[in-house]
């Protein structure tokens, strides 16, 4: 007994910490499916992107869920927002560069605060060719908890949010890095 009490393990409690951590890690093993099971759609990384249906600037109907199978860059913007103006040309260039590989860009306009003539003038000025859904009531902005403009969600082909960038303007390289990640490995 005296020998045991004289040992370093008695004087140094660190080994208890390691042992406890080992036991806890083993005890908290989990099924990966169990972690995501029952998760409701939410505007957060690792969750299904909340679905919506809106009318676009050119009168079409766009439902996000129908884009499943393609990675989507979902951008929230308004024509009165300076960083949105700064990043839109890069958004258009990235759309042109990656469109053929299946990347979709959807730029939801905050029409509740942005008169339609201003939206149209903005789209014409920057020559935007991707869909511009109009959020007339602001319900999609609320569902995505958009606190700041611009806000951009990077959604993989399974409809799962992989990255979020709040604020801007985003550098073109960042858009390209994220687009490439979505296209090559599902963004994961």
């Amino acid at each position: 007994m005296k020998v045991l009490l004289r040992g370093w393990w008695w004087r140094w409690p660190g080994w208890l910490l390691v042992l406890a951590a080992l036991v806890w890690t083993a005890a908290r093993r989990t099924d990966p499916a169990a972690l995501v099971q029952g998760r409701p759609p939410a505007p957060q990384v690792g969750f299904q992107a909340p679905n919506f249906t809106l009318t676009t600037l050119d009168g079409q109907t766009l439902t996000l869920a129908e884009l499943r199978g393609q990675p989507v860059i979902l951008n929230f913007w308004a024509s009165w927002c300076p960083p949105c103006k700064a990043e839109m040309p890069a958004m258009q260039r990235v759309y042109e560069a990656y469109r053929a590989r299946g990347l979709q860009i959807v730029a939801v306009n905050y029409t509740a605060t942005d008169p339609l003539p201003n939206v149209q003038a903005f789209v014409d000025q920057y020559g935007l060719t991707f869909p511009i859904p109009l959020d007339q009531e602001g319900q999609v902005f609320a569902a995505y908890r958009v606190y700041s403009l611009p806000t951009t969600f990077f959604i993989d082909a399974d409809g799962v949010i992989q990255n979020i960038v709040i604020g801007g303007p985003m550098a073109e390289a960042l858009l390209r890095v994220r687009a490439e990640a979505l296209l090559t490995s599902g963004g994961k």
Partner: peptide, 16 residues
């Protein structure tokens, strides 16, 4: 990505 947009090297985006 940076070859296509070299000025992004100086971007303030922390995500880069």
């Amino acid at each position: 990505a940076f070859a296509a947009a070299p000025l992004s090297i100086f971007s303030l985006n922390p995500a880069l």
